[in-house]
Amino acid sequence: MTAVAGSTLVRFLTTDDVGPLMELERQKWTDEQATSAGELVRRIEAYPDLCVGAFCRSTAVGSLVRLEA
């Protein structure tokens, strides 16, 4: 699934996204709230159809959309 609306790209996450997602975790969450890289990989691999990201095409800034099973 990939959708483009204006400058926003919405797509399923892959394990290649973990590095940038960890940067987002560190910026937006406290140490107690943030998840680990290993846990992100586990979630993406376990629920590939439920892990979605929204990315600004001009700045490459992303947002994780967590869909819980």
Rank of each mutant, 00 (worst) to 15 (best):
V4P: 00
A60P: 01
V4C: 01
V4G: 01
K28F: 14
S63K: 14
V61Y: 10
D17H: 12
T2Q: 13
C51K: 12
R57K: 10
A60E: 07
T59Q: 04
V18C: 02
R66F: 11
Q33G: 07
K28I: 06
T8Q: 13
R43H: 13
A34M: 04
E68R: 07
D49Y: 10
E68I: 14
E45W: 03
L24C: 05
L21K: 09
E68H: 12
G19T: 15
V4E: 02
S7L: 07
E25V: 08
L21R: 11
D17G: 14
G19R: 06
A37Q: 11
C56F: 01
A34H: 02
A46V: 10
S63F: 12
D31V: 05
R66A: 15
E25G: 07
T15C: 13
K28P: 09
V10R: 03
T8H: 11
D49E: 09
R26I: 10
V65P: 14
Q27H: 12
W29V: 00
E68K: 08
R42N: 08
T59P: 01
C51P: 13
P48F: 05
E32A: 10
R43G: 05
A3W: 10
V65N: 14
T35G: 09
E39F: 09
F55E: 03
L13Q: 05
V41R: 02
V52C: 08
R57D: 00
D49N: 09
F12A: 13
G53Y: 03
R26P: 04
E32Q: 06
R26T: 13
G19Y: 10
E23H: 06
W29F: 15
T8A: 15
T2F: 05
E25A: 10
S58C: 12
T14W: 00
L64F: 11
E23Q: 08
V65W: 15
A69Q: 15
E45Y: 03
T2D: 08
T30V: 03
S63M: 15
G38C: 05
A3T: 01
L64Q: 05
R57P: 00
V10Q: 03
V18Q: 01
S7T: 05
A69C: 12
R11L: 03
L13C: 09
M1Y: 10
K28H: 15
V52F: 12
K28C: 14
T15D: 09
S58P: 06
S36R: 04
L64E: 14
P48Y: 07
L67A: 15
E39M: 10
L50R: 15
G62Y: 01
G53M: 05
T15I: 15
S36I: 01
S63P: 08
A37I: 13
R42W: 08
G38W: 07
R26E: 11
A54R: 01
L40C: 06
D31S: 06
P20W: 00
